[in-house]
């Protein structure tokens, strides 16, 4: 059985998940995630020596298609759901500022 997750670990996972959790959410999440992780730990008892992992249940081979130009939805439609845009771009806060993460 693994140790319960600490709030520091939960904060790290939240950062990786890009979720700005409140302190209260962090505390609740630590308890809930620890319970779930404690449950999934039972997989540790299964002997998986020499077992090939399954990523897809049905055999999937690389699927290729001809490299041909086709119709696409176009810039205007692609931007139609953007919360902020400036034709023909999506707009985000400045990313080249040295102070930014």
């Amino acid at each position: 059985m693994s140790e319960p997750l600490t709030e520091t670990e939960v904060r790290h996972i939240a950062k990786l998940s890009r979720l700005q959790l409140s302190d209260e959410e962090i505390a609740v999440m630590a308890v809930e995630l620890s319970a779930i992780v404690g449950y999934v730990d039972q997989l540790g008892e299964v002997n998986v020596d020499g077992i090939v992992p399954t990523a897809h249940a049905v055999d999937v081979q690389n699927v290729f298609r001809a490299d041909e130009i086709r119709d696409s939805i176009g810039t205007k439609t692609a931007l139609s759901n953007a919360p902020v845009s400036e034709d023909p771009y999506f707009k985000v806060p400045k990313v080249l500022d040295p102070g930014a993460v």
Binding site: N81, P83, V101
Partner: peptide, 18 residues
Amino acid sequence: VHYGHRSENPRDIFELYS
């Protein structure tokens, strides 16, 4: 960025996402 909810007045790109 591309669609859906966007937080108002994020300080930087990381905060925009999170």
